[in-house]
Nucleic acid binder design. Structure first.
Length: 337
DNA sequence: AAACACCGCAACCGCTTGGAG
DNA sequence: TCTCCAAGCGGTTGCGGTGTT
């Protein structure tokens, strides 16, 4: 926390528009200031933040008001500790999005980017660091995702394409497990995620893409195949910004069947790199037989690229051979028989 | 009980982006 | 095209609380 500055102190931050004419407060907000801001927002709603600060009678810059409202006073904020499900989701999303806290926060209703950022830096990062501090994972930097087996730092491209830090124990607190491994990724439409209710809050009512991940075995054989135990889960609700974009610009959002999801994913990862077509067919057939359906948001080609924030998938796919965990087919068959 | 170390988190800072004129 | 400004974002700071010695 910061000590409230003298009210007379000239603001030297980014609130340039006010500096010349007003002496602005900095530091912690008093209850009176909070009350003024809340009352104003309730009465007038959000407008230009400079006007909010002025009209609410606050000696604060608009930027400060905005932050206070967004991070603390907003009525729809969820308070209290992060649930294990939220932890899981944050970790999964961070593995995909990196430090795009606002993007992550957009998928966690009631949580702010600041809150998630703090939570990550103080709690999750530390736990991951502890996990990675085994003899084989001595590198201390946790800003990059790492291979849970040998501690090798992965490139951002690898990072973006994989779900890292997957939790083998499913919905329990993700990082409480000492057996964290990189996932072998596989689709599992059968296993509904306890996080799913979060998605009900998506404005369109469309449920987001849902993929499951397969934890690697405890012996470190992440690419070893073998029996599949679908436990770890992986969920990426859609970006609201994507939802709101007109079709044609950001891509259409389409509800698709599980088989379609499979096909999309296969095309996305340039499935030609994977050899076992029989297994792939086997999986798709199995999905079709069971008439299983994922209420999924899917993006194809450019659509997916846009949805993933302009990442160059072709670039990402260049090294697809270095992502054996993306080979769904060779690890799924035993589960479906 | 006091001193110290560590941690969590509210708030700040500086930069980028996008819209308006 | 350029400038200005508001909004948004991610990184950083530093205080108060808590745990440890």
């Amino acid at each position: 926390m910061r000590k409230p500055d003298n009210p007379g102190r000239i603001n030297s931050s980014g609130c340039a528009a006010f500096n010349a004419t007003a002496k602005l407060r900095k530091g912690l907000w008093s209850p009176e200031e909070d009350e003024k801001l809340v009352n104003y927002m309730i009465r007038n709603g959000q407008g230009c933040w400079s006007d909010v600060a002025r009209n609410a009678g606050l000696q604060r810059c608009g930027k400060s008001c905005r932050l206070r409202w967004i991070n603390y006073l907003r009525p729809d904020l969820k308070r209290g500790a992060f649930s294990p499900q939220e932890e899981d989701l944050i970790i999964h999303l961070h593995s995909l999005l990196g430090n795009r806290w606002s993007q992550i926060a957009a998928r966690l209703p009631g949580r702010t980017d600041n809150e998630i950022k703090n939570f990550w830096n103080s709690t999750i990062k530390k736990r991951l660091k502890n996990i990675s501090s085994s003899p084989n994972t001595s590198d201390s930097s946790m800003d990059q995702p790492r291979d849970g087996i040998n501690g090798r730092l992965r490139s951002n491209q690898e990072h973006n394409m994989m779900g890292v830090y997957m939790n083998p124990s499913s919905s329990s607190s993700a990082l409480s497990s000492s057996t964290w491994q990189l996932p072998n990724m596989a689709l599992n439409p059968m296993n509904l995620d306890p996080i799913l209710p979060i998605l009900d809050q998506q404005p369109t009512g469309i449920v987001g893409s849902y993929f499951d991940v397969q934890p690697c075995n405890a012996q470190g054989g992440i690419f070893g195949g073998g029996n599949i135990d679908f436990e770890g889960q992986f969920l990426v609700p859609p970006l609201e910004s994507v939802n709101n974009e007109p079709s044609g610009k950001m891509g259409n959002l389409v509800e698709k069947s599980t088989a379609d999801v499979m096909n999309n994913m296969n095309s996305i990862i340039n499935y030609n790199q994977c050899n076992n077509n029989n297994n792939n067919n086997n999986v798709n057939n199995k999905l079709s037989e069971n008439n299983v359906r994922i209420e999924g948001l899917c993006w194809e080609g450019d659509e997916l690229r846009m949805a993933m924030g302009e990442w160059d998938l072709e670039e990402l796919m260049k090294d697809v051979s270095s992502f054996p965990f993306l080979d769904f087919s060779s690890r799924m068959t035993s589960h479906w028989t």
